[in-house]
Amino acid sequence: MIPPQFDYVRPANLDEALAILRDREGAKVLAGGYSLLPLLKLRLASPEVLVDIGAIAGMDGIAEVEKGLHIGGRATHRSIHENAAVKARYPLLEDAAAGIGDPQIRNWGTMGGSVAHADPSADWPAVLIASRAAINVRSAGGDRWIDARDFFIDSFQTAIEPNEILTEIRVPAPGANAGGAYAKLERRAGDFSTVGVAVQLNLGADGQISAVGIGLTAVAPTPFAATDAEAILMGATPDEATFRRAGDAAAAQSSPTTDAHGPAEYKKAMVSEMVVRALRSAVSRARKQA
């Protein structure tokens, strides 16, 4: 499959890239390419010019600060997976990174690219929603931060404007007695999720849930926060009955479609089950910290 014709530029720095996005119509940002190139090959996208950000220094770092994790827009799935701070303190990210695509794709595919592409079945968006991450986008005129919960507008549509580049993602520090987990139902290893559930939570001194975020993927036109389930869990005792009530609430809030991965009713049942599994794992990890 041959992509349509386009022009290609590889700017040496971010300002140059932003100037191109400001000045040229129909520009599209290229990072690893493992989301964009399939679209081009299927001719579902036909940009005038690809702006390859692969040569811009300083966009692929991962830094841990007191307030959390600063992940460069071009950090690869693999670099996140192998990061020592992620392994030690961000199990939700480690879980999710391990299940994305395959080794070759994890070598080159990026978190920023995946998030900007906004495939409704992608894993990172649910993770960022559960962790209440903030996403930085920059244009020639300046930059702004977008809450991950406001970022995904529709399938393959985000709050990024055509003249903006996603430059950084900030994941808040998990805090005390924290646990996170990603539960992914997939037909084969490395597939896009049939159902994906991200959970990030904290336990209070009394052992009850003091903070919780739940992001769902593949079961609605966009990834979304399971707010009804979050409301049930806040302040609750983390037991099986509560997990199941939260799972059922998340299932009720989802709107999956029937497709090759299964009927809508099956997926709803699996939302409930995967929420329960992610909660079990997150709570068990939080207790180990205590």
Binding site: G33, L37, P38, K41, N107, W108
Partner: peptide, 11 residues
């Protein structure tokens, strides 16, 4: 390692 069907020659 990379999958060369999903990379551009210019990359």
């Amino acid at each position: 390692s990379a999958k060369s069907c999903t990379l551009l020659a210019v990359q």
